[in-house]
Design a protein around this nucleic acid. Structure first.
Lengths: 237, 237
DNA sequence: GTATGCGATACTGTATACATCAACGAGTAC
DNA sequence: GTACTCGTTGATGTATACAGTATCGCATAC
């Protein structure tokens, strides 16, 4: 339940911002399943805001590809197809190696950034040593998220930075809609470690190559899992 | 002057769409210079629409990076800095070679698409043979535009396609804000011809390489021109 | 039983009134 | 002369009323 106090920590955020953020989170977490209709009036009831900010939030989500908007018909949570997963990861495979390259160069010139990557490397090692468990998986994904954001933050090119940031909710949603393979965590931790080493070693090419490999492995795992047990709320077409 | 008839060819487009398109064109053409304030009320007067569609158009333009939106302060046409030009072309250099690769593969399987590229190749040759003139330059840019849209249309990956399409207004604006170098047209025509040949020959790698080269040449020319004569309405910082 | 037409319903698209806030300038105290 | 306060102005943020339209169910004709 969101606090209804007039002066929360988000006092300077507009209602449109709040509605946008809330819906984005719910879509990311899979609480709003793909295909769910989102009529403006129902959102007015659910959020307490009026139609104007709700409308703006929906348009923004549509621009990010999280919502499909049909003129004079309404909005639905966007669907996830096998093709869209392929497209997403192919595109990330194009962008993220370039981003990690920029991040590697930035780390070479910025001791603080290097410290941050070094610190995350230590955390990956600690996670690697833990026994498999739900908590460990959660800790890993939380850390992997921080790692990704660090890379995004170190990406100089604004277009590249914004585009990658915009893809993140799609990836996160996919993870939350499909089953997580505990086996995958071990491999993924190892992949992140190798990338960390390349970044800290200043080897941009190596970092880029390993990032591309990591993405290829990720999408392969996802497709394997989808083939065995169909994830909840995914259209398989 | 836009027709004011109630049932034009755009009868099914919403006013928000119309305002958005109109402003986008004016920004692209440089009629609205970078930094121009765009208050909602002034746009209401200019466009005849009410604040709601105007607002939506502004938000959309902001999402596309053509307008800067400061909360509780207003909107301005986004500024163009040297860094933003570098970022734009670096990013295009990442995306467009990948797109032309997909287009080349698509052309290999689609005779009609191949015919389209072949036809445009012929037009490039005809332009090459003309004597330099304003009209020739205009014809070239119009054709180059069609060529780019053909590539975009042949790009399978939806993320890639949409992202490239979103960058086009930025490139167009740059061209319209800076002086066009007639010398450049000859070189650029030749570069397009080489790319056409690679596409028609089914050599995706070659097409990608030539596209990257073409972009590098383009940005180099732009910087040279900016260094000599500062283009109208550009912030040089 | 099936298909077609009509009407009720609920939604989006638009306009506009109101609330709130930042920027600017006049006036005054010092 | 300078700095500060306060009121004015015009902008955005929000709420809501109204208009137009797609959709769905039901009745009716065949």
């Amino acid at each position: 339940m969101t606090a209804a106090v007039p002066d929360g920590p988000d006092a300077d955020l507009s209602k449109a911002d709040l509605v946008h953020r809330r819906l984005k989170e719910e879509i990311e977490l899979g609480e709003l399943a793909p295909g769910t209709p989102l009529s403006e009036l129902s959102l007015v009831e659910r959020t307490g805001a009026s139609r104007t900010p709700v409308r703006e939030a929906l348009r923004r989500l549509a621009a990010e590809g999280l919502v499909d908007l049909v003129p004079r018909q309404g909005a639905r949570v966007s669907r996830v197809s096998l093709q869209s997963v392929r497209d997403l990861f192919d595109f990330r495979g194009l962008l993220e190696p370039a981003a990690i390259r920029q991040a590697t160069e930035a780390a070479g010139a910025d001791p603080e950034l290097r410290r941050a990557f070094s610190s995350m490397r230590g955390e990956f090692v600690r996670i690697q040593r833990r026994a498999p468990s739900q908590a460990r998986s959660r800790a890993f994904y939380e850390l992997a998220d921080r790692f990704d954001w660090a890379v995004i933050g170190a990406t100089r090119n604004e277009h590249l930075r914004r585009t990658i940031a915009e893809l993140r909710p799609h990836t996160a949603r996919l993870r939350n809609l499909s089953h997580v393979d505990p086996q995958r965590v071990d491999v993924s931790v190892a992949e992140h470690l190798v990338i960390c080493d390349a970044v800290l070693g200043g080897d941009a090419d190596e970092a880029a190559r390993r990032t591309a490999e990591h993405l290829a492995q990720s999408v392969a795992t996802i497709f394997r899992n989808l083939a065995s047990g169909p994830g909840a709320g995914l259209d398989l077409n």
